[in-house]
């Protein structure tokens, strides 16, 4: 088994497009979870993840490819940290900005060789006001050196 070398991706921009949380989609999401949407227009807080992931400048498959990893090989969510500076609102155009913070290789008894990609994303309002900052890490399992 050949395990590719780690590419130099630190600092790669993940700036993306605007993302608008639609009131209708927020209602669908809330109802799927058995809760009522906020009457004042606040979106479900989980949109921190959805808006950044959907709106960033790479798809998950594209992000994996940057790390020389095939998304079909099964990336796994490792950690996810969010800081909110204000409630997320439906109807607001959030600009998604971000970059790759790190790509490191580790060894795990269970997974064998694995790469850890860490990236940060922000949701900003048009005037530059930051609504939230998110740092995600994904585990990219490479398998054991004996091929298992």
């Amino acid at each position: 088994m050949t395990i590719p070398e780690l590419p130099d991706v630190v600092g790669h921009s993940l700036d993306g497009a605007n993302y608008v949380i639609s009131a209708e989609q927020n209602r669908t999401l809330c109802h799927s979870l058995g809760v009522e949407p906020d009457a004042g227009g606040k979106a479900h807080p989980v949109y921190f993840y959805i808006a950044t992931q959907v709106g960033m400048g790479e798809t998950v498959a594209g992000l994996c490819a940057l790390c020389n990893f095939d998304v079909e090989d099964g990336p796994m969510m490792g950690t996810c940290d969010v800081t909110y500076f204000r409630p997320l609102m439906t109807g607001e155009p959030y600009r998604v900005r971000g970059r790759i913070l790190g790509l490191t290789r580790k060894r795990s008894r269970k997974l064998g060789i694995m790469d850890l990609v860490e990236y940060q994303l922000h949701l900003d309002l048009p005037d530059g006001t930051r609504a939230c900052s998110v740092t995600n890490s994904w585990i990219l399992p490479r398998g054991h050196e004996d091929g298992n």
Binding site: H44, P45, Y49, V82, Y84
Partner: peptide, 26 residues
Amino acid sequence: INLSYIINMLQAALPGGFIESISNRF
């Protein structure tokens, strides 16, 4: 979706609160 369950638990337990931060390990 799994994150949402945690958020819903926090919002139900502390109604009227503003979640400032969450750190998750999967």
